[in-house]
Simulated scan of single mutants.
Amino acid sequence: MFPINRPRRLRRNQKLRSMVRETQLTLDDLIYPLFAVPGNNVVKEVKSMPGIFQLSIDKIVDEAKIVRDLGIPSIILFGIPENKNIEATGAWDGRGIVQQAVEAIKKEVQDLIVIVDTCLCEYTNHGHCGYLQKDNFTGEVLNDPTLELLKKTAVSQALAGADVIAPSGMMDGFVTSIREGLDKEGFSNIPILSYAAKYASGYYGPFRDAADSSPQFGDRRTYQMDPGNAREALKEVMLDIEEGADMLMVKPALSYMDIIWRIKEITNLPVAAYNVSGEYSMVKAAAANKWIDEKQVTLETLTSFKRAGADLILTYHAKDAARWIQGK
């Protein structure tokens, strides 16, 4: 009873508040996305994502060094190939853009965990995440034939030196298929970070500019999840755990913190939150208009993902957040 109980006693100064803070954002929480493109000396800003660039491999190595020097432990790689086709050959080609980027980074940058996005949408000429029933851009995306392409893609990425495989296409059984492919080729120690609960979200728009991956017809609602569903996310997660996933992801993060919480309540596996492009760009736009304090809002948002239960955060804010965490 007041006046004995005074919660403000523990808020009196910064040192005391830090000592009793329940949730701490650290450098080890952060994963920084990078976009690899063909060419040399390419640094092309994504207009809808201020501060984010498409980078040629030489420049992506330079960026990886900056990320490492900031103390960020990991990156996730996306690739935009020179040519796209119905079979998504650029995804599983041993000399594909992501494979070359992985090799270059692993050669030049030490102590950086390289995660690779394992999907087909950047590599198909129709922008969908798998095989089509027909070649006329009006067919259904076929699940089981797509699994074979994902398996080949994961193996080629592992051969290039990837540390973690992150399948994102939301195909049924993709964890089983990729695990079988990796194990058969001697990569049983490479973990799978499954995009276990990936929603058909309106927050992906800027990413599709960055990755040149907008679908040429229809949408992805037949394989990505309905935003209104929570119990289905738990079903997807349990299936991926049974299939051998080592880590789980929720995408997007900001509007789905309840999903992060629910998943963390049912599993001890590490859970990642993807702070996606639309979430990033909204903060950048508001900050540019001086409507918000970018540093305060960014760190508050990232901390909230951890408070909801996330162990890892994929975010385009990672470099800025690392500097702010270190007081730079």
Rank of each mutant, 00 (worst) to 15 (best):
91 A>L: 04
107 K>T: 15
103 E>P: 13
100 Q>C: 14
142 L>N: 10
149 L>T: 12
67 V>C: 04
87 E>S: 13
153 T>N: 09
77 L>K: 00
152 K>P: 03
113 I>F: 06
142 L>G: 13
132 L>T: 11
164 V>D: 01
116 V>P: 01
108 E>Q: 13
124 T>C: 04
152 K>Y: 07
113 I>C: 05
159 L>S: 09
84 K>Q: 13
92 W>N: 05
159 L>T: 09
81 P>C: 07
70 L>S: 09
115 I>H: 06
95 R>N: 15
156 S>F: 05
121 C>H: 02
66 I>G: 12
152 K>I: 05
112 L>W: 03
130 G>K: 07
115 I>F: 04
90 G>H: 02
128 H>S: 12
158 A>R: 05
103 E>I: 15
135 D>R: 12
151 K>T: 15
79 G>V: 00
147 L>R: 08
141 V>D: 05
124 T>I: 07
66 I>Q: 10
159 L>Q: 11
77 L>H: 01
138 T>N: 12
137 F>A: 15
139 G>N: 08
155 V>F: 00
152 K>R: 13
116 V>D: 01
109 V>L: 04
137 F>P: 11
69 D>H: 10
83 N>H: 15
136 N>Q: 08
136 N>L: 10
153 T>A: 09
107 K>I: 13
148 E>W: 07
131 Y>Q: 09
141 V>T: 07
99 Q>S: 04
164 V>M: 01
132 L>S: 11
110 Q>S: 14
157 Q>S: 14
156 S>H: 05
92 W>C: 06
92 W>H: 07
162 A>R: 00
146 T>R: 08
102 V>G: 04
74 S>E: 05
127 G>E: 04
135 D>M: 10
135 D>H: 08
130 G>P: 04
104 A>N: 06
127 G>L: 05
98 V>H: 00
76 I>V: 12
